[in-house]
Design a protein around this nucleic acid. Structure first.
Lengths: 207, 207
DNA sequence: GTTGGAGTTGAACGAGCGTTCGAAGCCCCA
DNA sequence: TGGGGCTTCGAACGCTCGTTCAACTCCAAC
């Protein structure tokens, strides 16, 4: 605790702040809570960070950057579209599972930021979404016509992956590899691989 | 505004509260905001509701109850498992799209409640999840083995459907029927209907 | 041994919060 | 005309919030 560089202390602060934010939510967590959780005084927190909002921004942007960097890394040189998608999903879920608190904060506190902070995180979101949609376009080229609108499909996949912050326990009986495989299969082939033209799929509204 | 029953006024309060909560988030919205938005005084709000938390609870429970009731209704008498799933999805998305504010609050402020309020909403969640998983079990019986763990599949479908609060605009160019159809096809047959055994689907981790 | 900057702190500030309460307004029925 | 119960309100209470700041410790450099 004593001989840490300034950067290491900031890192520690961000990490315990993420844990607190994930637990209680950004708004319900006070700077006093964060001070207590990271072992410094209330005023001490402000030596490392300009405001509570900057703290949230740093958590969101640093982790989002890591996810994007990991994605670019794992896709580099891979040409098969399906494998590219598998790697995209793997990277996302693997990072999510090993950084549950941070990713929960990123998923859930999406619009707690304002102004330039919000803009910069939203830029990353656009970038990341674009990358997924490019992969989907490649898949359509090689594996026939899509069963759904590409944008809807992309957001649905993000929904499957990000929603895990509400239910998934990385230490439970479903390991990350199994989770990733499940979601990948689900997205590419569906729950039971039903042909799209089947039966009543064209029916209108129900009820 | 003048000749409304007490119930009607409560209804109006809940509706404008849902709109405010959806806009700014539960915690960032003050009782003064709600009073302003619904056109009564601050103290006036407390004539209809015991606390801010009860307000949130009423929004969540009433709408969740409506979703569940709609689901039971639309499934009644329908025996084909696939159509049951279609109707389940249709009901969920249709209600979501016509009650965006309320459902955003239900999805996003899931753990802002405590004690008995939380317990009662969680009971509804369990009930609703169970219903979906029963439908999935039926589908497996009639349409061969599943491509994914049933629990993972159920939560993934909820993820697809609930995540729409972050991106979907009911007034945009994707209508509710199209959205519902897309998500239904996606879940049952996958994005391009890829056979599960295909290529590298059994590969381990990436990167 | 003094200086100076980095790190840390207790105490306070003004503002906003959720909630309460006594009093006033309103309207129907006698 | 007057009483009584719903409904509404202004004003206040106690509390917690994010943020600031002068003062302190510590330690390396001279």
């Amino acid at each position: 605790m004593a001989n840490q560089t300034r950067d290491q202390k900031l890192e520690g602060l961000l990490s315990s702040a993420a844990r607190e934010f994930a637990l209680r939510g950004y708004d319900r967590t006070s700077m006093r809570d964060l001070a207590r959780a990271s072992g410094v005084s209330l005023a001490g927190v402000y030596y490392y960070v300009q405001s509570k909002e900057e703290l949230l921004f740093l958590i969101q942007s640093r982790n989002f950057e890591a996810v994007i960097a990991g994605m670019r890394d794992t896709l580099r040189g891979v040409t098969d579209p399906v494998e590219r998608l598998q790697r995209f999903i793997d990277n996302h879920l693997d990072y999510f599972a090993t950084h549950m608190a941070e990713m929960k904060v990123l998923s859930r506190e999406a619009d707690a930021l304002e102004g330039e902070f919000l803009q910069r995180v939203n830029d990353m979101k656009r970038q990341y979404t674009r990358a997924l949609m490019d992969v989907l376009a490649d898949i359509e080229k090689t594996h026939g016509p899509a069963h759904a609108n590409r944008r809807v499909a992309a957001y649905s996949l993000f929904g499957m992956m990000n929603w895990i912050y509400t239910w998934y326990d990385p230490l439970g009986d479903v390991g990350v590899e199994l989770l990733s495989q499940n979601i990948c299969r689900l997205f590419l082939g569906g729950y039971v691989g039903l042909p799209v033209s089947e039966t009543a799929l064209s029916r209108g509204g129900a009820g």
